[in-house]
Design a protein around this nucleic acid. Structure first.
Lengths: 184, 184
DNA sequence: ACCGAATGAGACAGTAATGTCTCATTCGAG
DNA sequence: CTCGAATGAGACATTACTGTCTCATTCGGT
């Protein structure tokens, strides 16, 4: 059984997202490996967190690219984006809540780049008249992260079915909770 | 200068919300007191977290009560609720992300009670025809927590003005990002 | 201004988690 | 099947944080 680095990091992200104080032992257990092996591949907690951040950002960046945010209607692009985040929702939940790394001044440029690309999508939607203009694209972006994390947590807690992930987030983010008049 | 228990807990919540691994020393520093004094009032980290949870839940419950969720239009009640959460946003951010306490089986009944009351508001809105019915009240509630946490974080990071707190959350949660036809 | 109470600063021991090592066992390529 | 590499389990030392204590200083009521 070869070592599945990404699977270990995914398990770690999901655990740390809801219990940031988990020990290396708990993380190893959650990943289904021994503490020794965990330490062989990630020399210490700092290295683990760093790898977590690195993989999370890389995957998210790939998701953003695959969603082709510049193509077609903004709401369609947003739909593709959210659907794409599903496999990395655990990473997003972890990364968006735990900014203990960034505050060391390095303020990860990768994270800023992703923010910029998603914000640009919302701005494009505003300029095309699809999205409302009384709130900033940055807030929309932050709100998206928040909803993704909330959805990931709700699913993990068994409160919601996994298949509802995308419609839940997309429906709420696009239309809000208010009922809309059926006037297409 | 007398000891302001609530202020200390508020500072602790805001710090722990974004860095759950903060040491007692860092918490004390963030609260503007010494580690010795922190320990005099909260005997150990567990006691601190417990007090944090207790005060947070109590305050949030008070906010929910003050918002009179059963009165008037559901959207107005939601508006009052969100405005009321502003002073306790740091607590909500901490409590909604860190469930390390609940998983010890006690699954705080106070938290469940608050969830139930807020969910009831959304359900009432659905039944009155104000809110859409294709998503569950529980999801609306979780989403509210997520948006509150996202807003609190955005403000703390200086990305958004504090005065925009309520309109940001309310606007997004009620109407979503899509532009609505001006047809009242 | 006084005095008791609370605080801050620091030293110190205890403890929990980490980093490191060893060794038997398992895995998997050839 | 064989052998080298990787893993799991555990022991051990180290580190970092916590819990506790002391004492000088400051605060605040009277």
């Amino acid at each position: 059984m070869s070592f599945d680095r990404d699977a270990v990091l995914r398990a770690a992200a999901e655990l740390l997202a809801r219990k940031a104080t988990a020990t290396q032992d708990e993380i190893a257990k959650a990943a289904g490996i021994s503490r020794a092996t965990l330490h062989r591949h990630f020399a210490g907690r700092d290295a683990l967190i760093r790898a977590l951040e690195e993989l999370g950002l890389r995957q998210l960046e790939q998701v953003v690219t695959d969603a082709r945010l510049d193509d077609g209607a903004a709401r369609e692009a947003l739909s593709r984006l959210i659907e794409g985040t599903r496999p990395v929702a655990g990473f997003i939940a972890f990364l968006s809540t735990e900014n203990q790394l960034f505050e060391e001044g390095e303020m990860n440029e990768g994270w800023e780049r992703i923010d910029a690309r998603i914000s640009a999508l919302f701005r494009r939607g505003q300029e095309s008249g699809e999205f409302r203009i009384d709130m900033s694209p940055i807030w929309f972006t932050e709100a998206l992260y928040g909803l993704v994390a909330a959805a990931a947590w709700a699913i993990q807690a068994g409160r919601t079915a996994p298949r509802d992930y995308t419609p839940m987030i997309l429906g709420l983010l696009l239309g809000g909770v208010e009922r809309r008049d059926p006037t297409p």
